[in-house]
Protein backbone atom coordinates (compact mmCIF):
# COMPACT_ATOMS: atom_id res chain seq x y z
CA UNK A 1 0.00 0.00 0.00
CA UNK A 2 2.85 2.35 0.83
CA UNK A 3 4.45 1.47 -2.47
CA UNK A 4 1.27 2.38 -4.33
CA UNK A 5 1.20 5.72 -2.55
CA UNK A 6 4.84 6.47 -3.36
CA UNK A 7 4.25 5.54 -6.99
CA UNK A 8 1.32 7.94 -7.28
CA UNK A 9 3.33 10.69 -5.65
CA UNK A 10 6.25 10.09 -7.97
CA UNK A 11 4.07 10.20 -11.09
CA UNK A 12 2.50 13.40 -9.78
CA UNK A 13 5.88 15.04 -9.27
CA UNK A 14 7.10 13.89 -12.65
CA UNK A 15 4.06 15.28 -14.44
CA UNK A 16 4.26 18.59 -12.64
CA UNK A 17 7.97 18.83 -13.42
CA UNK A 18 7.20 18.22 -17.10
CA UNK A 19 4.65 20.99 -17.03
CA UNK A 20 7.14 23.34 -15.39
CA UNK A 21 9.71 22.43 -18.04
CA UNK A 22 7.21 23.26 -20.80
CA UNK A 23 6.80 26.76 -19.41
CA UNK A 24 10.58 27.08 -19.17
CA UNK A 25 10.89 25.86 -22.78
CA UNK A 26 8.63 28.64 -24.03
CA UNK A 27 10.39 31.31 -22.01
CA UNK A 28 13.86 30.13 -23.03
CA UNK A 29 12.98 30.51 -26.71
CA UNK A 30 11.44 33.93 -26.14
CA UNK A 31 14.59 35.26 -24.48
CA UNK A 32 16.93 33.41 -26.82
CA UNK A 33 15.31 34.98 -29.89
CA UNK A 34 15.13 38.42 -28.27
CA UNK A 35 18.75 38.23 -27.17
CA UNK A 36 19.96 37.39 -30.68
CA UNK A 37 17.81 40.06 -32.31
CA UNK A 38 19.16 42.59 -29.82
CA UNK A 39 22.84 41.68 -29.99
CA UNK A 40 22.94 41.20 -33.76
CA UNK A 41 20.63 44.09 -34.57
CA UNK A 42 22.03 46.81 -32.32
CA UNK A 43 25.34 47.26 -34.20
CA UNK A 44 23.41 48.09 -37.40
CA UNK A 45 21.43 50.86 -35.74
CA UNK A 46 23.04 54.25 -36.19
CA UNK A 47 22.09 57.65 -37.55
CA UNK A 48 22.51 56.70 -41.20
CA UNK A 49 20.28 53.64 -40.69
CA UNK A 50 17.38 56.05 -40.20
CA UNK A 51 18.37 58.72 -42.69
CA UNK A 52 20.07 57.16 -45.71
CA UNK A 53 18.99 55.05 -48.65
CA UNK A 54 20.33 51.52 -49.10
CA UNK A 55 23.67 51.39 -50.90
CA UNK A 56 24.32 49.07 -53.86
CA UNK A 57 25.45 45.55 -52.94
CA UNK A 58 28.95 45.44 -51.57
CA UNK A 59 29.20 49.14 -50.73
CA UNK A 60 29.59 49.99 -47.05
CA UNK A 61 27.20 52.25 -45.16
CA UNK A 62 23.74 53.32 -46.15
CA UNK A 63 20.49 52.88 -44.32
CA UNK A 64 16.90 51.80 -44.62
CA UNK A 65 15.21 55.19 -44.38
CA UNK A 66 12.95 54.47 -47.34
CA UNK A 67 11.82 51.15 -45.90
CA UNK A 68 11.05 52.75 -42.53
CA UNK A 69 8.96 55.39 -44.24
CA UNK A 70 7.30 52.73 -46.42
CA UNK A 71 6.32 50.60 -43.44
CA UNK A 72 4.92 53.69 -41.69
CA UNK A 73 3.01 54.81 -44.76
CA UNK A 74 1.50 51.42 -45.59
CA UNK A 75 0.59 50.69 -41.96
CA UNK A 76 -1.04 54.10 -41.46
CA UNK A 77 -3.18 53.75 -44.58
CA UNK A 78 -4.11 50.17 -43.66
CA UNK A 79 -5.16 51.43 -40.23
CA UNK A 80 -7.22 54.22 -41.78
CA UNK A 81 -9.11 51.66 -43.86
CA UNK A 82 -9.30 48.71 -41.48
CA UNK A 83 -10.06 50.34 -38.14
CA UNK A 84 -13.20 52.38 -38.97
CA UNK A 85 -14.61 49.48 -40.99
CA UNK A 86 -13.83 47.03 -38.20
CA UNK A 87 -15.32 49.20 -35.47
CA UNK A 88 -18.53 49.74 -37.45
CA UNK A 89 -18.89 46.02 -38.15
CA UNK A 90 -18.18 45.29 -34.47
CA UNK A 91 -20.83 47.86 -33.56
CA UNK A 92 -23.32 45.99 -35.71
CA UNK A 93 -22.51 42.68 -34.00
CA UNK A 94 -22.77 44.10 -30.50
CA UNK A 95 -25.51 46.74 -30.82
CA UNK A 96 -27.82 45.55 -33.59
CA UNK A 97 -27.16 42.02 -34.83
CA UNK A 98 -26.46 40.31 -31.51
CA UNK A 99 -28.00 36.86 -31.90
CA UNK A 100 -29.28 37.27 -35.45
CA UNK A 101 -28.27 34.86 -38.19
CA UNK A 102 -26.27 37.50 -40.12
CA UNK A 103 -24.31 38.33 -36.98
CA UNK A 104 -23.37 34.72 -36.32
CA UNK A 105 -22.27 34.21 -39.93
CA UNK A 106 -20.15 37.37 -39.76
CA UNK A 107 -18.62 36.22 -36.47
CA UNK A 108 -17.81 32.79 -37.89
CA UNK A 109 -16.20 34.21 -41.04
CA UNK A 110 -14.29 36.87 -39.10
CA UNK A 111 -12.85 34.18 -36.82
CA UNK A 112 -11.71 32.18 -39.84
CA UNK A 113 -10.29 35.27 -41.52
CA UNK A 114 -8.23 36.06 -38.39
CA UNK A 115 -6.22 32.88 -38.89
CA UNK A 116 -6.44 32.70 -42.68
CA UNK A 117 -3.05 32.40 -44.40
CA UNK A 118 -1.80 35.94 -44.92
CA UNK A 119 0.03 34.94 -48.08
CA UNK A 120 -3.28 34.02 -49.70
CA UNK A 121 -4.56 37.51 -48.87
CA UNK A 122 -1.48 38.77 -50.71
CA UNK A 123 -2.33 36.64 -53.75
CA UNK A 124 -5.95 37.85 -53.61
CA UNK A 125 -4.96 41.53 -53.53
CA UNK A 126 -2.44 40.87 -56.31
CA UNK A 127 -5.22 39.53 -58.51
CA UNK A 128 -7.56 42.34 -57.47
CA UNK A 129 -5.37 45.45 -57.43
CA UNK A 130 -1.93 44.71 -58.88
CA UNK A 131 -2.57 42.72 -62.05
CA UNK A 132 -5.46 44.81 -63.42
CA UNK A 133 -3.74 48.12 -62.66
CA UNK A 134 -0.43 47.14 -64.11
CA UNK A 135 1.97 47.23 -61.21
CA UNK A 136 2.88 46.82 -57.56
CA UNK A 137 1.77 49.69 -55.38
CA UNK A 138 1.79 50.95 -51.81
CA UNK A 139 -1.99 51.14 -51.84
CA UNK A 140 -2.29 47.44 -52.72
CA UNK A 141 -0.04 46.64 -49.74
CA UNK A 142 -2.21 48.79 -47.50
CA UNK A 143 -5.39 47.07 -48.68
CA UNK A 144 -3.84 43.65 -48.02
CA UNK A 145 -2.86 44.67 -44.49
CA UNK A 146 -6.27 46.23 -43.84
CA UNK A 147 -7.95 42.91 -44.77
CA UNK A 148 -5.72 41.16 -42.23
CA UNK A 149 -6.51 43.81 -39.64
CA UNK A 150 -10.27 43.91 -40.23
CA UNK A 151 -11.36 40.68 -38.47
CA UNK A 152 -9.09 41.39 -35.49
CA UNK A 153 -10.63 44.82 -35.00
CA UNK A 154 -14.18 43.51 -35.50
CA UNK A 155 -13.87 40.84 -32.82
CA UNK A 156 -12.12 43.08 -30.28
CA UNK A 157 -14.58 45.94 -30.85
CA UNK A 158 -17.50 43.56 -30.36
CA UNK A 159 -16.04 42.02 -27.19
CA UNK A 160 -15.29 45.42 -25.72
CA UNK A 161 -18.69 46.93 -26.61
CA UNK A 162 -20.41 43.90 -25.07
CA UNK A 163 -18.71 44.64 -21.75
CA UNK A 164 -20.73 47.87 -21.47
CA UNK A 165 -23.77 46.86 -19.37
CA UNK A 166 -27.20 47.06 -21.02
CA UNK A 167 -28.50 49.13 -18.12
CA UNK A 168 -26.20 51.94 -19.24
CA UNK A 169 -27.72 51.83 -22.72
CA UNK A 170 -31.23 51.73 -21.29
CA UNK A 171 -30.56 54.69 -19.00
CA UNK A 172 -29.42 56.79 -21.95
CA UNK A 173 -32.31 55.62 -24.14
CA UNK A 174 -34.76 56.47 -21.35
CA UNK A 175 -33.53 60.06 -21.44
CA UNK A 176 -34.77 60.19 -25.03
CA UNK A 177 -31.44 59.94 -26.83
CA UNK A 178 -31.60 58.20 -30.21
CA UNK A 179 -29.94 54.82 -30.51
CA UNK A 180 -26.98 56.01 -32.59
CA UNK A 181 -26.23 58.80 -30.14
CA UNK A 182 -26.35 56.34 -27.25
CA UNK A 183 -23.89 54.15 -29.14
CA UNK A 184 -21.50 56.95 -30.00
CA UNK A 185 -21.62 59.00 -26.81
CA UNK A 186 -22.25 56.37 -24.15
CA UNK A 187 -21.29 52.90 -25.34
CA UNK A 188 -18.14 53.93 -27.24
CA UNK A 189 -17.03 56.03 -24.31
CA UNK A 190 -17.37 53.07 -22.00
CA UNK A 191 -15.41 50.80 -24.32
CA UNK A 192 -12.81 53.24 -25.65
CA UNK A 193 -9.98 51.84 -23.57
CA UNK A 194 -10.48 48.27 -24.67
CA UNK A 195 -10.99 49.21 -28.30
CA UNK A 196 -7.83 51.36 -28.33
CA UNK A 197 -5.87 48.43 -26.94
CA UNK A 198 -7.29 46.09 -29.56
CA UNK A 199 -6.50 48.54 -32.34
CA UNK A 200 -2.94 48.97 -31.08
CA UNK A 201 -2.43 45.20 -31.05
CA UNK A 202 -3.86 44.89 -34.55
CA UNK A 203 -1.59 47.67 -35.85
CA UNK A 204 1.43 46.04 -34.21
CA UNK A 205 0.54 42.72 -35.75
CA UNK A 206 0.18 43.97 -39.32
CA UNK A 207 3.30 46.14 -39.13
CA UNK A 208 5.28 42.90 -38.76
CA UNK A 209 3.55 41.14 -41.66
CA UNK A 210 5.67 40.19 -44.64
CA UNK A 211 3.82 37.62 -46.71
CA UNK A 212 0.93 39.84 -47.87
CA UNK A 213 3.36 42.58 -48.96
CA UNK A 214 5.61 40.44 -51.15
CA UNK A 215 3.31 40.66 -54.19
CA UNK A 216 1.48 43.87 -53.40
CA UNK A 217 3.79 46.69 -52.35
CA UNK A 218 6.85 44.68 -53.50
CA UNK A 219 10.10 46.57 -52.93
CA UNK A 220 11.96 49.69 -53.97
CA UNK A 221 15.55 50.84 -53.49
CA UNK A 222 14.67 54.50 -53.58
CA UNK A 223 12.41 57.00 -51.90
CA UNK A 224 8.80 56.67 -52.87
CA UNK A 225 6.01 59.00 -51.85
CA UNK A 226 3.45 57.91 -54.44
CA UNK A 227 0.77 55.45 -53.45
CA UNK A 228 0.71 53.93 -56.91
CA UNK A 229 4.38 52.92 -56.97
CA UNK A 230 6.19 49.91 -55.49
CA UNK A 231 7.30 50.72 -51.96
CA UNK A 232 9.98 49.28 -49.72
CA UNK A 233 9.00 48.04 -46.25
CA UNK A 234 11.14 46.85 -43.37
CA UNK A 235 9.75 43.34 -43.43
CA UNK A 236 10.14 42.73 -47.17
CA UNK A 237 13.63 44.24 -46.92
CA UNK A 238 14.46 41.70 -44.21
CA UNK A 239 13.24 38.92 -46.47
CA UNK A 240 15.34 40.02 -49.44
CA UNK A 241 18.45 40.92 -47.47
CA UNK A 242 18.46 37.86 -45.23
CA UNK A 243 18.26 35.54 -48.24
CA UNK A 244 20.90 37.57 -50.11
CA UNK A 245 24.56 36.59 -50.26
CA UNK A 246 26.23 39.68 -48.76
CA UNK A 247 27.33 40.10 -45.15
CA UNK A 248 26.35 43.81 -45.15
CA UNK A 249 22.84 42.84 -46.23
CA UNK A 250 22.53 40.39 -43.34
CA UNK A 251 23.71 43.13 -41.00
CA UNK A 252 21.05 45.50 -42.33
CA UNK A 253 18.41 42.78 -42.07
CA UNK A 254 19.26 42.24 -38.39
CA UNK A 255 18.99 45.99 -37.83
CA UNK A 256 15.54 46.02 -39.45
CA UNK A 257 14.56 42.92 -37.46
CA UNK A 258 15.59 44.67 -34.26
CA UNK A 259 13.58 47.77 -35.11
CA UNK A 260 10.38 45.92 -36.03
CA UNK A 261 10.60 43.52 -33.07
CA UNK A 262 11.23 46.35 -30.62
CA UNK A 263 8.22 48.23 -32.02
CA UNK A 264 5.87 45.25 -31.91
CA UNK A 265 6.89 44.14 -28.42
CA UNK A 266 6.70 47.70 -27.11
CA UNK A 267 3.14 48.17 -28.37
CA UNK A 268 2.09 44.74 -27.10
CA UNK A 269 3.50 45.41 -23.62
CA UNK A 270 1.96 48.89 -23.43
CA UNK A 271 -1.47 47.54 -24.34
CA UNK A 272 -1.13 44.82 -21.71
CA UNK A 273 -0.40 47.50 -19.12
CA UNK A 274 -3.50 49.43 -20.22
CA UNK A 275 -5.66 46.33 -19.94
CA UNK A 276 -4.33 45.53 -16.51
CA UNK A 277 -4.92 49.11 -15.35
CA UNK A 278 -8.56 48.62 -16.24
CA UNK A 279 -8.97 45.37 -14.35
Amino acid sequence: MDLHYIKRKAINLLALAASLLSAVFGIVFLFWILKDVLTLGMPAINASFFTELPTPAGVEGGGLANAILGTLMITVIATAIGVPAGIMAGTYLSEYGRKSRVASVVRFLADILVSAPSIVIGVFVYALLVKPFGGFSAIAGSVALSIIMLPVVIRTAEEMLKLVPDSTREAALALGAPHWMVTVKVVYRGAIRGITTGVMLAVARVSGETAPLLFTSFNNSFWNFKLTEPTATLTVTIFNYALGPYEEWHQMAWGAAFLITALVLFVTLISRVIVRGKA
Binding site: L30, I33, G208, L269
Partner: peptide, 14 residues
Amino acid sequence: IELLASIPSIIYGM
Protein backbone atom coordinates in the same frame (compact mmCIF):
# COMPACT_ATOMS: atom_id res chain seq x y z
CA ILE B 1 4.14 33.29 -23.71
CA GLU B 2 1.89 35.87 -25.36
CA LEU B 3 4.92 37.92 -26.39
CA LEU B 4 6.21 34.81 -28.12
CA ALA B 5 3.03 34.97 -30.23
CA SER B 6 3.55 38.61 -31.08
CA ILE B 7 7.05 38.25 -32.57
CA PRO B 8 6.61 38.69 -36.35
CA SER B 9 7.01 35.47 -38.28
CA ILE B 10 9.81 36.88 -40.44
CA ILE B 11 11.89 37.21 -37.26
CA TYR B 12 11.33 33.53 -36.52
CA GLY B 13 12.40 32.73 -40.06
CA MET B 14 15.53 34.82 -39.94
